[in-house]
């Protein structure tokens, strides 16, 4: 078994996903299959292989440090479920 039910629930909680016990079992089984498939790579000797962060290696694309303001603030704000003036209104985070 590549992943436990507890690990599935832990990751779900970090991702703010709620799932029923049946869904958690199904998810565990599917993730287990995916991880088992990927584990085939363990059969290779990778001692001399440099870790890969990206599939395609090429030069870094940069942009120059110049300002081009985005003029449609309203387009950004209108996606929000709630607002107050030009602020986004969000649930209060209690920190104490």
């Amino acid at each position: 078994m590549a992943i436990t039910r507890e690990e599935v629930l832990h990751v779900a909680r970090l991702a703010r996903l709620s799932m029923s016990p049946a869904e958690a079992d199904k998810m565990r089984e599917q993730l287990d299959n995916i991880l088992a498939y990927i584990r085939q790579l363990d059969r290779l000797d990778t001692a001399d292989v440099v870790p890969t962060s990206h599939a395609v290696e090429m030069g870094t694309p940069f942009r120059d440090d110049s300002v081009h303001p985005f003029e449609e603030k309203e387009e950004i704000l209108k996606n929000a479920p709630d607002r107050e003036g030009d602020f986004f209104r969000v649930p209060r985070i209690i920190e104490d």
Binding site: R63, D64, D65, P69, K73, I76, L77, D86
Partner: peptide
């Protein structure tokens, strides 16, 4: 929210490009 755009507000489908 004056200095915002689809990239820095994380809208779907946008692509960040690094400032040199």
């Amino acid at each position: 929210n004056e200095n915002t755009c689809p990239v820095c507000t994380g809208m779907p489908g946008v692509l960040p490009v690094l400032n040199r």
